[in-house]
């Protein structure tokens, strides 16, 4: 579905991501784990067209490198950005409405989609008219995921959904991600919290200093010493 080959991204003279290759097959959940500054978010920004990159990002046979962010959304790749980035002075409904901006849904279909999001996150349904900026971090994360789902993505990319959230809230969010996975949505999950990430993903890649250092099925990764030491704290 998504095939990244020899992807490099530079900020001025500093190369943040070096020649990485990565694949996401239809229906699977792939995680990209790595510590702070490893290049995870840079990779995501390259895929979603936020920053320019060299190399090849092919999605269902189509080259995405060179397209801008708003065009890539129309291809069906939607990002839940790091730090949530909900629209603080729009209410919950308006935020979700913005999520459907690129889709050609009619208003009936859009309302149906919104209902689905409210079923997935009953907390949001209780707060339809609340301004997003006044909600808690966990609620904002739910809203950010809900907003992305409104676009009916074929590939959902989640950038650090656990960031800055209390462990109990992280567990909630990951339960929802698991639920979305069961519905068959393809996902690329970027995480620092490797334990959580490996618990939902099918395959994982490790990123260090801008390079892929390992990749395997999660069952194998959980047993590997290098992963245990670096990420799982065992």
């Amino acid at each position: 579905m998504l095939e990244i080959e020899q992807l490099s991204v530079s900020y001025g003279r500093i190369q943040a991501v070096r020649n990485i290759s990565l694949k996401v097959e239809s229906g699977e959940v792939v995680t990209l784990i790595g510590s702070n500054g490893a290049g995870k978010t840079t990779t995501v920004h390259a895929i979603t067209g936020v920053i320019p990159a060299q190399g090849s990002i092919r999605y269902e046979g189509k080259e995405l490198c060179g397209l801008s962010a708003h065009q890539i959304v129309r291809e069906g790749i939607v990002l839940v950005p790091e730090g949530r980035r909900v629209f603080p002075r729009l209410n919950v409904e308006e935020n979700l409405y913005m999520g459907a901006y690129a889709s050609k849904m009619g208003s009936a279909e859009r309302d149906q989609e919104m209902e689905r999001v409210f079923q997935l996150f009953p907390r949001l349904a209780e707060r339809k008219t609340q301004l997003a900026g006044t909600m808690s971090g966990g609620e904002q994360q739910m809203l950010a995921i809900g907003r992305a789902l409104m676009a009916k993505p074929k590939l959902l990319i989640l950038d650090e959904p656990s960031m800055g959230l209390a462990p109990i809230v992280v567990k909630d969010i990951f339960d929802t991600i698991r639920q979305i996975k069961q519905e068959g949505l393809t996902m690329l999950l970027i995480e620092q919290n490797a334990m959580m990430a490996l618990s939902v993903a099918d395959r994982g890649y490790g990123l260090e200093h801008g390079e892929i250092v390992f990749s395997d099925h999660v069952e194998n990764l959980r047993d590997q010493d290098v992963v245990k030491k670096a990420y799982l704290g065992k």
């Binding site: 629209f87 002075r89 308006e94």
Partner: peptide
């Protein structure tokens, strides 16, 4: 609504498909 969204977070708006 898109104008409001861009005023509040331009990058997030473009990630929603807003030109």
């Amino acid at each position: 609504v898109a104008i409001q969204a861009v005023s509040q977070d331009m990058r997030a708006a473009s990630l929603m498909g807003v030109n």
